[in-house]
C-alpha cells in the first residue's frame, strides 16, 4: 500500500534506533565498566591455579558471574556488510569486550560479598546458545566467568 512507509518502519527506524540509542547505551555501559573496575581494583584476579601463599588462606569458595548481551540492529547490519568483504569485525569485538568485562565484574562483586581479597583460577566461557537456537539473526553472546575466591 505504502511501500515507502513500510520501508521506513522496518528498516530506517530500527537502523536509526540502533545507531543512536545503541551507541549511547554502549558508551554508558563502557563508562560504568570503567568505574566499577576501579572500584574492584583492590581484588587480585589471576588465572593461576594457585596464587601466592596458599598456606595462609582462611577459606575458599566458588564465585561466578554471568551476562547475556545483544548488539544493536545497526551493528548487526554493519557486521553483515563486513562479512561480504572480510576483515576485522569491530562491532562484535566491542560486544565481546562488554560481555567479558561485565561477567568478570559480577564475579568480583560476589567475591567482595564474602570478603575475598583474591580470586584464583579464573575461567571465562562464552557460548551463544540463544542466538544459535533462535529465529532472529541479531547477534548476542553469553559469557560466564568463574573462579575461586580467597579469604585471607
Amino acid at each position: 500500500m505504502f511501500p515507502e512507509l513500510t520501508m521506513l518502519l522496518f528498516v530506517i527506524v530500527p537502523l536509526a534506533l540502533g545507531f543512536g540509542v545503541g551507541r549511547l547505551r554502549e558508551r554508558r555501559h563502557f563508562a560504568s565498566l570503567d568505574r566499577r573496575e576501579r572500584e574492584f581494583a583492590d581484588i587480585t584476579v589471576t588465572n593461576l591455579k594457585t596464587g601466592a601463599a596458599p598456606e595462609r588462606v582462611r577459606s575458599a569458595a566458588l564465585v561466578s558471574g554471568e551476562v547475556v548481551i545483544a548488539t544493536d540492529y545497526f551493528k548487526t547490519l554493519a557486521a553483515a556488510l563486513r562479512k561480504l568483504i572480510g576483515g576485522e569485525m569491530r562491532s562484535y569485538e566491542t560486544l565481546m569486550n562488554r560481555a567479558r568485562r561485565e561477567a568478570l565484574l559480577r564475579m568480583l562483586s560476589e567475591a567482595r560479598d564474602i570478603g575475598a581479597s583474591e580470586v584464583w583460577n579464573v575461567r571465562l566461557e562464552s557460548s551463544n546458545v540463544l542466538s544459535a537456537t533462535s529465529n532472529n539473526q541479531a547477534a548476542s553472546v553469553e559469557v560466564f566467568a568463574f573462579g575461586t575466591a580467597i579469604v585471607r
Binding site: 530500527p14 534506533l17 540502533g18 540509542v21 545503541g22 547505551r25 554502549e26 555501559h29 551476562v67 547475556v68 548481551i69 545483544a70 548488539t71 544493536d72 540492529y73 551493528k75 548487526t76 560486544l95 561485565e102 540463544l130 532472529n136 541479531a138 548476542s140
Partner: peptide, 8 residues
C-alpha cells in the same frame, strides 16, 4: 533489545 543493544 536487539534493536538498541544491551543486556538481555
Amino acid at each position: 533489545k536487539n534493536l538498541v543493544g544491551g543486556e538481555l
